[in-house]
Design a protein around this nucleic acid. Structure first.
Length: 596
RNA sequence: UGCCCGAUGGUGUAAUGGUAGCACAAGCGACUCUGACUCGCUUUGUCUAGGUUCGAGUCCUAGUCGGGCAGCCA
C-alpha cells in the first residue's frame, strides 16, 4: 500500500525532542528555530540526512523553522559547486514534508541593527524560500557583525592578539593531561589589541603572523578552553564574501554567534562537539547579548554498515575515479542515492526510524534496505524484464503468433490496472530460472518439469538444445494454453512461477546492477579503505524488456518482477536508449543448499 | 596516565522507580500466477560488583569496556 499522507507515522520521540518540548512548555521561546549548517566542502551524504530530518522534523512538529545555513568560514576548502549541490539535496529530501519550515533569507541580506529588550542588537530574519529573492543563510554574511563582536571581546579584556606561530601555539597548549602555558602576548593592553586586530583586518600582516584568541584558561582540563583561536589571517578570496576579508573566524567563534544572529533556539550537532559546548556558551555569555541564547545539544551521528560517511574519504573515491562522481549511484551521497532511485520518503523513514541517541553505533544496512523496499513496493508498477536471457521455444505456438496476456500493473493497488504482454513462440527467461541439474527444492524450470510463465500459462520442458561445445542454446517447451487466465485450467497449480519476455517484441536496455561499494561492514575501521572495495559493486548487462517500457521518459521506478526495483538513470537514459539503475533487489528468501 | 560522552537480544531503539516492548535481521509455518508482499509462531537482551528502595534497565558508588578531545578544519 502506498503511504497515506493523511495518517502519518506518529511523531518520533527522543531526548532532544523531549528538551524542545520542555522548553516549549516552559514558554522559553516564542518560536522554535533550528538550523542545518553544512560546510560547503563536499556533498551531503546519508549521515547528513539524519541531521536534516532531525532539525527539520523538530521545526515541523513545533510549527517552527529550520534555517539552511552554510558554515563557510574556511574559504580554502569551500566551493560554490558544493553550495549548489547542498541546496538541491536538502530541498529534495524535505520536499512535500517540511518545505514550509525551510528558513531562507533575503538575497544579500545581512544582520541588521535592532533593539531587543531595550538594548542594541543585531538580527537576521527569515523569508519564504519560494520568494524570488530568497537564498540560504551564510555565516560569511555575518563577518562584519562577528568582527564587531570581536572588538567587544577585546574591549572587555576577553580576547587578545597573539603573535605565536601555529607550531608555538601547539606547544603552549600543552597536552590533555598536561596544562598549557600562557602566551607571552596574553597581557597586551586593550588599546594594543584593538590596533593590532584592526591591522589584521586591514591586511597589514601575512598569513599566520598573528591570531585573535579568547582569553580563558590555559590550564583548563578542557583543551578547547585553553585560549582558543577566534580569527586567523588568510589572504584568500571567499566564494561568497568575495575579496572583502583577509581574516576569517574559526568555527567555534562563528557558529554560536551565527546561531544567535538568526534567533536559533536549539543548535543540534554531533557528539564530537560536546567538548566545544563550554566554549559555545562562554562566547555568548561574555557578550551579554540581549535576546534569549541558543543552546547546543549533541547526538550520535548515523553510520550505516558497508558504507563510508567521511567527506574526505568520499572525495578520495571521486578524485581517484573509483566512482564516476559524487552522484555515482553507489555513493552514500544524497545525490547518489537519488540517482540510484531511492525515494526521499524512504530515506526520511530510515533516518527517523533509527532514532536519536548519544550512543555511537553502526546501523545495520538492512534497516535502510527495508525502508526502500517497503516504500517502492507500494508505489512501483510491475514489469517483466530478463537480465540474463536464455532462449526458450514454445514448440506448439506458430511462428509469428502472438497470444496477448493481461498483466497486473500493481497488485498492491486498491484498484489495479492491467496492460497486455505478448506471448510468442520464442521467449527469453532468466538463466537462473533453469537448472539442468537442480538442487533440492528448486521450484523453477528443470528437465521434464513444469513452471508457470507469469501472466501467461504453464509450460513443460521437453528438450535442452546444446551447441557443439556443450553450451545450452535453447530450451524447447510445450505451452498449455488452457492454463491461461480465464481458461478452464487457469487455476492449475505448479510450484514455480517465472518471469519472461517475448523474444520477438521485447526491447534491449542497458541495466546497471549495483551492489554495496564495500565488502566489509565497517570500512572506516580499515587501515586502507580502498582495499575493501567490493570489486563487483557494478555489473552492467544488456537486458530484454517487455515492449511496454519502450520510450520510457524517466524518473519513474518500476519493479521488474522477481528481480527488484529499477529506475532510469537520469544522466544516461534516453527514451530511445534506455539505461536503468537497479535501486535495490527484492528480498530473496531462497538460498540453494550450499549457498548460491 | 587529564577532561568529556556512552553501554538494553545479531542490529537500531522503547520503557522517565512498578509486567523489559517495538522495528529490522534470523528460523519455522500459512498464503501465493513475484521463493516478493501479507499473516502466524519462535529464538535471542538490561556490562560487572556493591548500595538506596517494598520494588532498580532506570537513582548512587566503584570498576570494566567502547567512543571523543591536544587544526590557525568544521
Amino acid at each position: 500500500m502506498s503511504v497515506d499522507p493523511s495518517s502519518p507515522a506518529p511523531a518520533p520521540s527522543d531526548f532532544i525532542r523531549d528538551i524542545v518540548a520542555a522548553d516549549v512548555a516552559a514558554g522559553k521561546y516564542a518560536k522554535i528555530v533550528t538550523r542545518f549548517p553544512p560546510e560547503p566542502n563536499g556533498y551531503l551524504h546519508i549521515g547528513h540526512a539524519k541531521s536534516i530530518c532531525l532539525n527539520f522534523g523538530i521545526a515541523r512538529e513545533q510549527n517552527g523553522q529550520c534555517n539552511l545555513r552554510f558554515d563557510d568560514t574556511n574559504p580554502v576548502k569551500e566551493d560554490v559547486e558544493y553550495v549548489d549541490s547542498i541546496v538541491r539535496d536538502v530541498r529534495w529530501l524535505i520536499a512535500g514534508w517540511a518545505d514550509s519550515c525551510l528558513g531562507f533569507k533575503p538575497r544579500g541580506g545581512k544582520p541588521i541593527p535592532v533593539t531587543s529588550n531595550g538594548q542594541p542588537d543585531s538580527y537576521l530574519g527569515p523569508v519564504s524560500p519560494d520568494s524570488p529573492d530568497a537564498e540560504p543563510f551564510f555565516a560569511s554574511d555575518y563577518f562584519e557583525a562577528l568582527y564587531a563582536y570581536a572588538l567587544t571581546l577585546i574591549r572587555n579584556g576577553d580576547a587578545y592578539v597573539c603573535d605565536l606561530s601555529a607550531k608555538e601555539t601547539d606547544e603552549y597548549r600543552g597536552a590533555p593531561d598536561q596544562p598549557g602555558r600562557d602566551s607571552p602576548w596574553r597581557g597586551r593592553s586593550v588599546a594594543e589589541n584593538l590596533a593590532l586586530f584592526e591591522g589584521m583586518r586591514r591586511g597589514d600582516f601575512p598569513d599566520g603572523a598573528r591570531s585573535l584568541r579568547a582569553k580563558i584558561d590555559m590550564a583548563s582540563p578542557n583543551v578547547w578552553l585553553r585560549d582558543p583561536l577566534l580569527y586567523r589571517i588568510r589572504h584568500v578570496p571567499h566564494h561568497h564574501a568575495g575579496n572583502a576579508w583577509c581574516i576569517y573566524p574559526l568555527y567555534d567563534y562563528a557558529h554560536c554567534l551565527s546561531d544567535y544572529l538568526e534567533g536559533i533556539t536549539h543548535s543540534i550537532c554531533t557528539l564530537e562537539f560536546v567538548d566545544h559546548r563550554p566554549l559555545y556558551d562562554w562566547i555568548l555569555e561574555k557578550l551579554r547579548l540581549p535576546r534569549a541564547l541558543p543552546h547546543q545539544y549533541e547526538f550520535a551521528k548515523l553510520v550505516p554498515g558497508y558504507t563510508l560517511v567521511s567527506k574526505r574519504k568520499l572525495l578520495h573515491l571521486v578524485t581517484q575515479g573509483i566512482v564516476s562522481g559524487w552522484d555515482d549511484p553507489r555513493m552514500p551521497t544524497l545525490s547518489g542515492l537519488r540517482r540510484r532511485g531511492v525515494p526521499a520518503s524512504a530515506l526520511r523513514r530510515f533516518v527517523t526510524g533509527v532514532g536519536v541517541t548519544k550512543y555511537d553505533s553502526v546501523t545495520d544496512i538492512a534497516l535502510f534496505e527495508h525502508a526502500v523496499r517497503d516504500e517502492l513496493n507500494g508505489s512501483s508498477e510491475r514489469r517483466l524484464a530478463v537480465l540474463r536471457p536464455i532462449k526458450l521455444v514454445l514448440t506448439n505456438l506458430a511462428p509469428g503468433e502472438i497470444v496477448s496476456c493481461e498483466a497486473t500493473n500493481n497488485p498492491q493497488s486498491d484498484t489495479p490496472t492491467t496492460r497486455p504482454v505478448d506471448l510468442t513462440r520464442e521467449v527469453y527467461i532468466e538463466s537462473d530460472d533453469f537448472a539442468e541439474v537442480p538442487p533440492p527444492k528448486y521450484f523453477r524450470l528443470k528437465p521434464g518439469g513444469e513452471v508457470r510463465l507469469k501472466y501467461a500459462c504453464i509450460i513443460k520442458l521437453d528438450e535442452i538444445v546444446k551447441d557443439a561445445s556443450g553450451a545450452i542454446t535453447e530450451l524447447r517447451c510445450t505451452a498449455d494454453l488452457t492454463t491461461r487466465s480465464g481458461q478452464p485450467n487457469a487455476d492449475r497449480k505448479v510450484k514455480g512461477t517465472i518471469h519472461w519476455v517475448s523474444a520477438t517484441t521485447c526491447i534491449d536496455a542497458e541495466v546497471r546492477l549495483y551492489d554495496r561499494l564495500f565488502s566489509v561492514a565497517e570500512p572506516a575501521r580499515e587501515e586502507d579503505f580502498l582495499r575493501v572495495i567490493n570489486p563487483k559493486s557494478l555489473e552492467t548487462v544488456t537486458a530484454k524488456l517487455e515492449r511496454s517500457l519502450a520510450g520510457l521518459a524517466g524518473g519513474v521506478c518500476h519493479q521488474f518482477e522477481r528481480l527488484g526495483y529499477f529506475t532510469t538513470d537520469p544522466v544516461a537514459s534516453r527514451p530511445d536508449r534506455l539505461v536503468f539503475n537497479r535501486t535495490i533487489t527484492l528480498k530473496d528468501a531462497w538460498t540453494a543448499p550450499g549457498g548460491k
